[in-house]
């Protein structure tokens, strides 16, 4: 099983939630996982209902069976200073560089450098070993940039190649690339059963494959149960309105005769059922599309009350049931 799990997905699909649930699921039964975010949104802190994460690895949750989830918000500026310190022993020089605007240049403007720093930090955590010679983290889960940018983000080598053909940045990019392209890494896509996210997922997977990056699973998020299909709804609308009104009436929802409360509920309820059936049909088509991608497909149900901490554990348990870990 891969040790670096990169989670991407179109905006609004819940990739941060899924990344967090995956980190929890992987930590189950005594494992240690590190959950990292790279976009400075503090989405992890919000999910785990804690204050903003500093640039520091800290435990944010316990997983069932004695596992631990640690979290880190990777900040490119700190990552660069870290890097300078680690490789060049340049602690104080960092501050001077910052004053000059060089850090700003490297982390926000120089193309690709920012990404090398972010992915580089994640890869460092993957490879880090403790004094006992064992990996410090069993797994690293990354809440990565959205589908539209993921291939470019991970393909740091390509981004940097035209820019730094030799030198330390080049070498760092090479080292990062070796991890990212190895079976140690898996890139997962989060999607909804809607047209645009599914299309982006298919496009994104195509791009990852074209660039030789390892694809993992597709996680369908916020799946709602299919209760009625078109045939049932239309049959009902054709000939069962009065009977449905009666059934509603029996259930204590008012009178079933014309103009009665139960009778007046029938039309709006059928209308909702029609919309539901239309969605069910669209979802079926999207699911078929996803199945065609040839990757494992896992589904997470919609939490109707929104995702709180308890919901996150439920999603983690759900993932664990489906995902061979």
């Amino acid at each position: 099983m891969s040790r670096l799990h990169v989670v991407s997905g179109k905006g609004g699909t819940g990739k941060t939630t899924v990344a967090a649930a995956l980190a929890l699921a992987l930590a189950t039964d005594g494992r240690r996982t590190l959950l990292v975010e790279v976009e400075g949104r503090q989405g992890i802190a919000q999910l785990f209902e804690t204050g903003a994460l500093p640039y520091e690895e800290r435990k944010i949750a316990s997983a069932p069976g004695g596992g631990e989830v640690h979290a880190l918000a990777i900040d490119p500026e700190f990552a660069l200073l870290d890097y300078l310190h680690m490789f060049y022993k340049m602690g104080s020089a960092g501050r001077a560089l910052k004053k000059l605007g060089a850090i700003d240049f490297a982390t926000t403007i120089a193309p690709g450098l920012r990404d090398v720093l972010l992915t580089g930090k994640a890869c460092e955590a993957v490879r880090r070993k403790g004094k006992d010679g064992r990996f410090v983290y069993d797994f690293v889960v990354m809440d990565a940039p959205p589908t539209g940018r993921i291939t470019r983000f991970l393909n740091v080598n390509h981004e940097v190649a035209g820019l730094a053909r030799t030198g330390p940045i080049h070498n760092q990019a090479q080292a990062v690339m070796r991890v990212l392209k190895s079976p140690e890494t898996a890139v997962h896509m989060v999607t909804l059963l809607e047209e645009m996210p599914v299309q982006e997922t298919a496009d994104g997977i195509g791009e990852l494959r074209a660039d030789g990056l390892p694809t993992g699973a597709v996680i369908v998020n916020m799946v709602r149960p299919a209760i009625l299909d078109h045939a049932a709804v239309e049959a009902a609308a054709q000939g069962q309105r009065a009977a449905v009104a009666k059934a509603l009436s029996q259930a204590g929802l008012g009178g079933a005769r014309r103009g009665g409360l139960a009778e007046r509920l029938v039309d709006p309820l059928l209308e909702q059922a029609r919309e539901h059936a239309e969605r069910v049909a669209l979802e079926r088509a999207q699911r078929a599309e996803l199945t065609g991608l040839g990757l494992p497909l896992y589904e997470l149900e919609l939490l109707t009350d929104g995702v709180d901490l308890a919901g996150l554990y439920r999603l983690a348990a759900d993932l664990r049931k489906q995902w061979p870990m």
Partner: peptide
């Protein structure tokens, strides 16, 4: 009350229970 032809495909049991089942689904969706 019900013309059974309409609901026959979705519920061979007959209309009263099928209408109730349908009502249950409609209420859950709601």
């Amino acid at each position: 009350d019900d013309p059974p032809a309409a609901d026959a495909p979705s519920d061979p049991d007959g209309s009263p229970t099928s209408a109730e089942r349908l009502a249950v689904d409609l209420l859950r969706l709601h």
